[in-house]
Design a protein around this nucleic acid. Structure first.
Lengths: 224, 224
DNA sequence: TGAAGAAGTGAACAACTATTCACGGCGGAT
DNA sequence: ATCCGCCGTGAATAGTTGTTCACTTCTTCA
């Protein structure tokens, strides 16, 4: 063997790989998954189309990794927000608010990852992503139920329904228009969080209090 | 002019047009919008591919009409169910239950019409469809608010969120598996309707009563 | 420095589908 | 009966995009 990868080369390869993934992410953030096409992504990443295939066996694989990456970030953010809350109900409110804010700040990307059409190969990855996030929300509902703050219920179904409500009302085609205005954005987040909390059985008055508390730390995220 | 369409010919043309639309609907019900391709649809309708273009200027137009048709039916069903209810809250419950049942009995079709990817041309039609149904739900929420049964709220946003919750939890990728079992199906419909009613501010206890009443007439629809 | 092999390239290829169009035949008018 | 023109046809066309591969360029090591 007369050739061995030197440390420098390994780093460069990793950097290229990241660049390609980042290019894909940018493309998705701009034009949804439909915009994640090999040739344009390659251009963004400053490589040739063929090079993409040195790093990812297929487009489906590339998109799968993209979804996994975004999902990982999202899950971490949810956990961080929820764990910082003082109790189970607050944690649930924080989790919901976090999802709402994130989804709003990257609408196209969220839409692409959540709802846009893709090949069957990709749907596996997407399903896993959704399952993780839904599972996390379900766990938070579960905790609130155990604490006696919510009535017993099918937490998995409830979590899925909550996410559906958030996505549809915030990034769906009927979502309000001018959510770029920070005030409108905050209103939308509050409204939807309130809906979500009431849906799982939080009383109206109490839900309103939780929403106000949850939105305070989340406001900082809007800038990010 | 030596040629004029005779009544018989007009009827035959209309029949063919309907046949093509029906074929498209069947295809969508089986495999989602992706399965609505000109060639297969033509085969189903017993015509040649070119013939489809004698009736619809483009595939986008065909799909748009398909969406409009399904949407019209859906809206009518919702209105029928809601108008038959004794009061505004019952009407809202009936509307939600109707959507749930319909969506479940034609999952693939619903998925295709609601969420599957399509060209921009089609999204206009889809948007209109969604707006109509969401508007109807919003009107029912509005009525319940006016009757003093619900707190004041952004009814448009709430309606959108409700539909999102229904769709995601019933036909989304995380939807429960064996919803073909009638008992499971009814459970799912009840659970989701309950979630929806609580979300807009119906108290838990009262919501449970409304759900039970709403599911009774809707059960008949399951068979259809 | 030169040999060996890895990484990068991008034009060519392949598969898939919407759309077209020149033609055959049927339906209706006279 | 016979002509005219619309309806129906389906093979050919065209556009799009993922994937391949023969070749070039770069990196490593003796």
């Amino acid at each position: 063997m007369v050739y061995r990868r030197t440390h420098q080369v390994v780093k460069r390869l990793a950097a290229r790989r990241s660049a390609i993934l980042a290019a894909a992410r940018d493309a998705a953030a701009e034009g949804g998954m439909a915009a994640v096409q090999i040739a344009p992504v390659a251009v963004r990443a400053n490589v040739a189309a063929g090079t993409v295939y040195r790093y990812f066996p297929s487009k489906a694989e590339l998109i799968s990794e993209l979804i996994a990456e975004v999902s990982r970030d999202e899950l971490a953010a949810i956990r961080r927000a929820a764990d910082a809350a003082p109790g189970p109900s607050s944690a649930l409110a924080a989790a919901v608010t976090t999802v709402a804010v994130h989804v709003l700040s990257q609408r196209k990307l969220a839409w692409g990852i959540l709802a846009e059409p893709v090949d069957v190969d990709v749907s596996v990855s997407r399903l896993a992503s959704r399952r993780e996030i839904s599972g996390e929300i379900a766990a938070r509902i579960e905790a609130a139920v155990r604490a006696g703050h919510l009535p017993a219920q099918d937490t998995a179904l409830a979590a899925t329904a909550l996410l559906g409500a958030l996505h549809e009302s915030l990034v769906g085609p009927l979502a309000p228009e001018n959510l770029d205005d920070p005030a409108k954005l905050r209103d939308a987040v509050q409204t939807v969080t309130l809906l979500a909390l009431r849906a799982v059985g939080v009383m109206d008055a109490r839900a309103r209090g939780l929403v106000v508390q949850a939105v305070l730390p989340a406001k900082a995220l809007v800038g990010a």
